[in-house]
Amino acid sequence: MASQLSGRFLALVIVLVGVSLATFLMIHAVPGDPVFALLGDQATASDIARVRRDLGLDRPLPEQYVRYVARAVQGDLGTSIRTGQPVIQAIKERFPATIYLTIAAIFLSTISGLAVGVLAAVSKSRVVEFFVSVFPLVGLSLPTFWSGLLLITLFGLVLKWVPVVGDAGWRSLVLPAVALALPTSAVVARMTRTTMLATMNEEFVRTARAKGVPGRLVVYKHALKAALIPVVTVVSLQFGALLGGAIVVESVFARPGLGRLAVEAILARDFPVIQGVVLVSAVVFVLVNFAAELVYSLLDPRIAKS
């Protein structure tokens, strides 16, 4: 068990190093001089020389990378070209909005996905089966920027249940969270259904049925419980999809999150910010998955071996 964990931890470290290396190299992959990419086309020769010196771009690449990591570990991700603000500060300001949105979306998609998945698994009616198997997939098939606008039009404009923009506490969170949760809830529903169907055919459930335990109780007590574990995994894996999806959702709903920051930075070619957002999102995603894996292996020791 301990060696399993240390093995996973080593892998985690390797992945983190790789992630930082890839992010670091991004700026060097831009065609042309990286300083030009950093400063934009208004730069004068003296600006270019100064930035090159300040950033140590005149040093060999490996040395630059070590400096980059050393500074990043201390929380220094450079300075935004567009606003002159430290990148880490910009990220800190925007991070909460994205986290609230993501958590709300995880909550919504898990609840709705479980409900639909269970319904799909236990339903005996062909009509119900058709709808619960097709409907979530419709959610998965709608472009988010379009479903978002449809939600705004219906609930913000026609029904006026929620404000279209502005901060009205949780009420401003509902629509973007629903838009973001739609595709994920489909994935959760599908997973729930598959696992429950499988579990219902396993020995212990069949035994319970044979013993005369009412069908509904079997579903709730045994099958649903067994189905929950893989659902946790799916949700943690979907965390990355949600972080990515937040980029589009935040643009549609004018929410000041990390995704919006990334798009602004890309349109302004503000590379230090792009690098920072990409690095932070990737690290958060890797850590969340690692944590999920840990919890998972503690819950169910069989998993750790596979």
Partner: peptide
């Protein structure tokens, strides 16, 4: 109020 999407701004 920063609203990047014009369709959203009109709706707002």
């Amino acid at each position: 109020q920063v609203i990047p999407d014009q369709a959203t701004a009109t709706a707002a």
